[in-house]
Computed example of a mutant assay.
Amino acid sequence: MRKSVVKMNEPKTLSQDLITYNAILSDYSLFSPILDKVVEDYEKLGLGALNAQVWDKIKYSNTDCLEREYLKTLNDQLDSAGIRSDSMRKINLKDWQLPLIELGNLIDQLHRVYVDKLNINRLRLDLTQISFIDGKFEISEETKTEILLGLTVSLNSPTERLIYERLIKTAKAMTDTYELAREIGFIDRSGWKDVKINYVNHLIKQTENGFEVDNNMLRWQLDVMQRNSQKII
């Protein structure tokens, strides 16, 4: 049976924060009731069905972009009804902006959906990550991929893999050394938390069971190396 060959230039995934990923996707439920009302209020304007182009405009700029088109629609309706008198048109157009204001208030609510949920101490779903596709709101597959990628720690080159492998060996060696120190009574047996090591590099983190590579710090450090170096690793 042939073994699959992994190319050295292919990214190697170290970890994915699926808990945070699923929590971010679940944030959609906070937006959903308001989004349903947005569809209803928009359709009441008589500008047709909501579409992706309109949604992309109003979620950034509120409803200001709709004023001219909405006012034209109202005037066209008055023309069709044969209302020519300026005074009558003025009466019919009184408070014409109220439906837009109500729709704008919904957009404001969407931007403030986390105001009373300050205890959410993690990355959150952003309104800009919600798309309107085929007549309904959703988080697109492309956006889901981008979110997951942001929560993934990967090694992207042979050099990065080599650095990681050597750090793994270092972490293992340090764990073995301190385990031996505990066995001979050189270190207090009350636990790893009592061990203070000033010379441990920040790429190695201390855990209850020993040491391991800090994947997130490693990824950050590798990115810094890439930015500061003329040579691509």
Rank of each mutant, 00 (worst) to 15 (best):
T63M: 00
V195C: 05
I58R: 09
A173M: 13
K7H: 04
A81H: 05
L110Y: 03
I139S: 04
A173R: 05
P99G: 15
A181K: 06
D223P: 03
D134G: 03
I197V: 04
L148Q: 09
L71P: 01
V5S: 10
K90A: 15
Q206D: 03
Q53T: 10
L66A: 11
G185L: 07
T143N: 03
N119A: 08
S4H: 11
I101A: 14
K59Y: 00
D108W: 03
N9T: 02
R2N: 13
I130N: 06
L149T: 08
G135Y: 00
I83M: 12
Y70D: 13
N9F: 01
N215H: 11
N105D: 14
G135L: 05
Y70T: 12
D36K: 15
E179A: 04
T73K: 14
D214M: 10
D188R: 07
D95T: 06
R2K: 09
L98N: 15
K90T: 12
L50G: 08
D36P: 05
K94L: 11
T152Y: 08
K90F: 02
M174G: 08
G210V: 02
Q226Y: 02
D76G: 05
R124Q: 12
K196T: 01
T73I: 04
N216S: 08
D116R: 06
R227E: 15
K90W: 02
R124M: 04
I101D: 15
T13D: 04
K57D: 09
I187K: 01
L47W: 01
T175Q: 13
D79M: 10
N92C: 15
